[in-house]
Design a protein around this nucleic acid. Structure first.
Length: 833
DNA sequence: GTTGTATAGTACC
DNA sequence: GTCTGACCCATTCGG
DNA sequence: CCGAATGGGTCAGACGGTACTATACAAC
C-alpha cells in the first residue's frame, strides 16, 4: 500500500520503507485521513476500494498535519516547531540569523532555506488574489493553528491528493491536484525564495514520478496561465504558434461556476461581499449550493487533461461561443476536487494573475528540479546557473514543449542543443534599459569595462512597432511582434518590400521597427516622398485581412539588426552584424531604410535614442540589457512635456491600492471660460504614502468599509444581470458616508462646474490644487476633452504615458496649464517630427 | 434574416 | 508603455 | 569584528492612451 512522504508529497510504494526514497522525509501512514470528510467535498465519492479512510491518522483528526510556514516542509500536528528549519508552526516565523542557513540539514532539501519573514502588513503577497483576499481584514497568523480552512492543508495530506490508482499511478500523469497543492502552499507564504522552493519541489515530484514531458509542459502553462501582467489573457501554448488565442471571457467563467455548482446569482453576490475572492467564492458555492450529486464521479483531473480541454475550448468560435464555452467550463469545474476548483477559477479569470510568471519563475524552477534530480543535492550556485541556463534557452527558443522535452529526455546538454534560434520561431527580442541622463548612460555603458574605450552607436529611436522578421529558406516571411505574436498577416506590404530589399536567397532573421508614414507635405528636392507619422496613425491600421492594396496606412520599415543569415549571428558584435545587414539588404525609397545611426565617442547629447555598444552580442532576453540603453527625451528633467494639471476626479484602486484613489483624473483649466477639460487618468508616480494622504484629503479617510471593489469583483457582480440589485455601486454608499462631517468637503456629488470629459469616475472633486504631470507626447483623444475645439471640433487632447511628478504648491488654479498652451505643445511636437 | 450599436477583450506603445 | 514596493544579495558603514 | 544600513537587480502588480475585432443584443 502506498504511503506519501510528508515532506515532498512523493508516494512511496514500498510499504516496508521507513523514509521517503526521494527526500528521506517521514512517511505518512497508509491512506491516513487527517481531515474530517467534510473538508473534501467530492473526494469520498470517488474513493477507490483501496483507499479506505483508515482510522490511523498521523495526527488527531482535529489537528491535521501542518505545513511549515517558513520552509513548507510538512510537520506533524503535535509539533510546535518545524524540525527542518526550526520555525514555529503556531506563530508566524521569526527572522533567524543568516548563518543558520548553512547548517547541515538532516534531510536533503533546497539548497537554501527560505529566510522566514517577519510577518508584515499583508502587502506584497505572492499573488494579487491573495492580497485581495486578505487586504480588507486583519491578517491572521499563518498557518492557523486550529481549524484551518480545509484547503490550507492540502499539501499536508498528500496521501489523499495522490492516490496511486487515481492519478500518479496513471502512467505518470500529473494530477491537477498536485498543482493545486503547490499553489495552496504558495498562498501560505510570501517570500520569493519560498516560491522558488515550492515550484522546484513540485517539479521534483513530477520528475520522481516520471511524469511524461507533455504533462510537465502542461503543468508549466497551468502554473502561470497569464500571458502578461498588463493584458491578462491566457497562454497555453507559445504566443507565436498557430491557432486562436485562448479567450476565456469573464462572463463564461462566472456563468460556468453557477452552472457547475447549481447556485444562484444572489448567492454569488453575497459571497463576494463576504469573501472578496473569486476562488474562495467558488469553494463556498460548491459547499453550500453544490450538493449536486453526479451520477458518476468525474475522473481526477490531470494537468495534461485540463490543458487539452482548455485548448479545445479555444478553438470554438462564431455565434453562441460564450454559451458553448460556459458549458465546457462548467464540466471542468464540476470535475474539480478540493482546492482545484479555487485555482481553476483564479487562474482562468482574466487579470487574476497568480503571481508567477512562466519565464521568470516556473521554467527556472523546472531547471532547478532537473539539477536536483541529476546531482541529488546541488550547490546553490549550480542551481542558479541551471536556472539561468533554462531562462536563456527559453529566450532563444520560447517553446515550452521543445524545452521540456529536451530537458527531460536529455538533460541540460540536450536542452542547449535543441534550444537555439530557429527560423520561423521568434526569440525574445533584446531590450534596452531606460536611462534618464547622460551621466547615467555613461556610467552604465562603461560599468563593465571601465578603462576600455567603448564605441557606441546612437540610433534614432523610431516610434512604431517592433518587428522580428524571419525569412525562411523557402522564401516565406514571418513577422513577429515584441511580445512574440505572429503579425505576418498585418503587414503584407512590408513583406513584399523586404523581399525586394534582400539581395540574396537565404534564411535570415532581422530586427526592425515598422513606422507609419504619410506623403510629404512640403515638396522638396529629396528623393523620399514620405514623412514619418505619429504612432497614433500606425495604430489605426487594420489588424486582420490586410492586403497590400487595402493597407490604408502606409508603412516604412527601418532595419537595425541582423540576427541570422544562414547561421546564427547573435554571438557577433553589433558592428559586424550591422555591416552584414547593410551588405545584404538595400534601402528602398519610401519603404525600407536602415535605422539612422551615428557612432559616437560616448559623450554627445542627441535627442531621442537607442544607444548600443558596438562590441556587444545580441542578448535575447525578457530582462533589459546594459548594452542597449534608451534615452528618451521625456526621461530627462529638462525636456519632455510637463503639464500642470488639476485633479478633478478619481476611481477606487484595486488589489494593493484598494484603499486608495487610483487612478486620478486630471484636467486643464481655462480661466477665461472657467472650464476644466480632462487630460488623462494618472496612476503612476505616486508613492503609497501619497495615496494614503491624498485619499484622506479628498475623501475624508481611506477606503476600507464595505466590500472591497476589486475590478474582477465588480465584473462578477455585473454578470449577476440582476440590474436593480447590482446597480448599487459600492461607491455610492461610500460617497454618502464620506459626505458626512468627517469629509473634507472636497468630494462632490457631480462634476465640478465647467468640467468637460467623457469619463465618469465614481468620485468627483472640488478643483483646488495643481499637480505636475509628465508624459511622452500629446495625442488626440476621443474621451479627454482638454483643448476641445482648438485642434479638433469634437475631440480633445490627452497625454501618452502620464505620470505624476510632484505637487505644485506654488501654483494656484490660475497657473495651471491652459487649453491653449496644451494645443500649442501639441502643434509643436507635430512640427518636430 | 439583416443591419447597426454597445461592449469586452486584446493588441500596440 | 510608466511607475512603486517587496524581496534578495552583496558591499559598505559604524559602533 | 559583526550587525545594520545601503544600493542595485529582479519580480510582480497596479494601471496610462488609442484603436481594432469579435461577439451579444436591439432594431429594422
Amino acid at each position: 500500500m502506498a504511503r506519501a512522504c510528508l515532506q515532498c508529497t512523493l508516494l512511496c510504494d514500498d510499504s516496508a520503507a521507513e523514509r521517503c526514497s526521494l527526500c528521506g522525509g517521514e512517511l505518512a501512514k497508509p491512506f491516513a485521513r487527517s481531515l474530517s470528510s467534510s473538508a473534501y467535498i467530492d473526494l469520498d465519492e470517488d474513493s477507490q476500494p483501496g483507499g479506505e479512510p483508515a482510522k490511523p491518522a498521523p495526527q488527531p483528526a482535529t489537528k491535521p498535519a501542518q505545513s511549515c510556514p517558513a520552509c513548507t516542509v510538512i510537520c506533524g500536528a503535535s509539533q510546535s516547531r518545524c524540525d527542518t528549519c526550526g520555525s514555529s508552526l503556531l506563530e508566524p516565523p521569526r527572522k533567524r540569523p543568516k548563518t543558520e542557513q548553512e547548517k547541515e540539514p538532516k534531510e536533503p532539501k533546497e539548497p537554501k532555506e527560505p529566510k522566514p519573514k517577519e510577518p508584515k502588513e499583508p502587502k506584497a503577497g505572492i499573488s494579487s488574489f491573495f492580497k485581495k483576499a486578505r487586504a480588507p481584514s486583519e491578517d491572521p497568523p499563518l498557518p492557523p493553528p486550529a481549524e484551518p480552512p480545509p484547503e490550507a492543508n492540502d499539501l499536508a495530506t498528500p496521501c489523499e491528493s495522490f492516490k496511486p490508482q487515481g492519478c500518479w499511478a496513471n502512467a505518470g500523469a500529473v494530477p491537477y491536484r498536485h498543482l493545486a497543492a503547490a499553489l495552496d502552499a504558495l498562498e501560505a507564504t510570501r517570500s520569493r525564495l519560498s516560491k522558488e522552493i515550492i515550484l522546484t519541489n513540485a517539479f521534483r515530484v513530477m520528475l520522481a514520478m516520471s511524469a511524461p514531458a507533455g504533462e510537465v509542459e502542461a503543468s508549466c502553462y497551468l502554473f502561470a496561465p497569464a500571458k502578461d501582467a498588463q493584458a491578462g489573457g491566457h497562454r497555453l501554448r507559445p504566443d507565436w504558434a498557430e491557432g486562436k488565442p485562448l479567450s476565456l471571457p469573464h462572463k463564461s467563467i462566472t456563468a460556468a461556476l453557477l452552472e457547475a455548482t447549481g447556485s444562484s446569482k444572489a448567492d454569488m453576490t453575497r459571497l463576494y461581499h463576504e469573501l472578496h475572492d473569486s476562488g474562495e467564492v467558488a469553494l463556498a458555492l460548491r459547499e453550500r449550493g453544490g450538493r449536486q450529486k453526479l451520477l458518476k464521479a468525474p475522473a481526477p483531473l490531470t494537468a495534461g487533461g485540463v490543458r487539452k480541454a482548455l485548448l479545445a475550448l479555444s478553438e470554438l468560435s462564431g455565434s453562441g461561443v460564450e454559451r458553448a464555452k460556459t458549458g465546457r467550463l462548467a464540466a471542468l469545474l464540476r470535475a474539480a476536487q478540493g482546492t482545484e476548483l479555487k485555482w481553476m477559477v483564479r487562474t482562468f479569470l482574466p487579470h487574476m494573475a497568480v503571481g508567477i510568471s512562466l519565464e521568470a519563475s516556473v521554467l527556472p524552477a523546472l531547471g532547478a528540479a532537473v539539477e536536483w534530480q541529476r546531482t541529488g543535492r546541488p550547490r546553490a550556485e549550480k542551481v542558479r546557473s541551471s536556472q539561468d541556463e533554462v531562462r536563456h534557452c527559453y529566450a532563444l527558443r520560447p517553446d515550452v514543449q521543445a524545452l521540456v522535452t529536451a530537458l527531460l529526455e536529455g538533460g541540460f546538454e540536450a536542452m542547449r542543443e535543441s534550444c537555439t534560434l530557429q527560423l520561423g520561431v521568434p526569440m525574445q527580442p533584446m531590450l534596452a534599459k531606460a536611462c534618464s541622463s547622460i551621466p547615467e548612460l555613461q556610467k552604465r555603458i562603461r560599468g563593465a569595462l571601465p578603462e576600455k574605450a567603448v564605441t557606441l552607436a546612437a540610433e534614432f529611436k523610431y516610434d512604431g512597432q517592433r518587428a522580428q522578421i524571419h525569412v525562411l529558406r523557402n522564401g516565406d516571411v514571418r513577422i513577429f511582434s515584441r511580445k512574440l505574436d505572429d503579425m505576418t498577416y498585418k503587414y503584407p506590404d512590408v513583406i513584399s518590400a523586404l523581399k525586394r530589399s534582400f539581395r540574396r536567397q537565404a534564411g535570415c532573421v532581422l530586427d526592425a521597427e515598422i513606422v507609419a508614414v504619410v506623403p510629404k507635405t512640403a515638396e522638396g528636392a529629396e528623393s523620399e516622398k514620405v514623412d514619418i507619422a505619429a504612432f497614433q496613425s500606425l495604430a489605426t491600421r487594420k489588424r486582420k485581412n490586410v492586403t497590400a492594396n487595402n493597407a490604408a496606412v502606409a508603412v516604412k520599415l527601418f532595419l537595425f539588426d541582423l540576427l541570422f543569415l544562414e547561421e546564427p549571428l547573435i554571438g557577433l558584435p553589433f558592428v559586424q552584424r550591422r555591416q552584414k545587414l547593410r551588405e545584404n539588404f538595400q534601402a528602398l525609397e519610401d519603404v525600407v531604410a536602415f535605422a539612422e545611426v551615428e557612432d559616437l565617442e560616448a559623450d554627445c547629447q542627441p535627442e531621442v535614442l537607442e544607444v548600443k555598444r558596438l562590441d556587444s552580442g545580441y542578448e535575447p532576453s525578457t530582462k533589459r540589457s546594459d548594452c542597449w540603453l534608451k534615452l528618451k527625451k521625456d526621461y530627462l528633467e529638462s525636456l519632455g512635456d510637463s503639464l500642470d494639471l488639476i485633479p478633478i476626479g478619481g476611481w477606487r484602486g484595486s488589489g494593493r491600492k484598494s484603499r486608495w484613489i487610483s487612478p486620478w483624473l486630471v484636467a486643464t483649466y481655462d480661466p477665461d471660460e472657467g472650464t476644466l477639460g480632462s487630460v488623462c487618468r494618472v496612476m503612476s508616480g505616486f508613492s503609497d504614502k501619497f495615496y494614503k494622504e491624498n485619499t484622506i484629503k479628498y475623501l475624508g479617510r481611506e477606503i476600507r468599509k464595505g466590500p472591497e471593489a476589486e475590478k474582477v469583483e465588480e465584473k462578477e457582480e455585473d454578470v449577476e444581470g440582476d440590474k436593480s440589485a447590482s446597480e448599487e455601486p459600492v461607491e455610492e454608499d461610500l460617497e454618502e458616508e464620506v459626505l458626512e462631517p468627517e469629509s473634507s468637503g472636497l468630494l462632490l456629488k457631480r462634476p465640478a462646474p465647467g468640467v468637460d470629459t467623457a469619463e465618469q469616475p465614481p468620485f468627483w472633486f472640488q478643483p483646488t490644487e495643481v499637480w505636475e504631470i509628465r508624459g511622452a507626447d500629446i495625442t488626440i483623444s476621443p474621451k479627454h476633452m482638454a483643448a476641445k475645439g482648438l485642434v479638433d471640433p469634437k475631440k480633445g487632447l490627452s497625454l501618452r504615458f502620464p505620470r505624476f511628478m510632484r505637487k505644485r504648491e506654488d501654483k494656484g488654479l490660475h497657473q495651471a496649464t491652459t487649453p491653449t498652451q496644451l494645443a500649442e505643445l501639441f502643434r509643436k511636437q507635430g512640427q518636430h517630427r
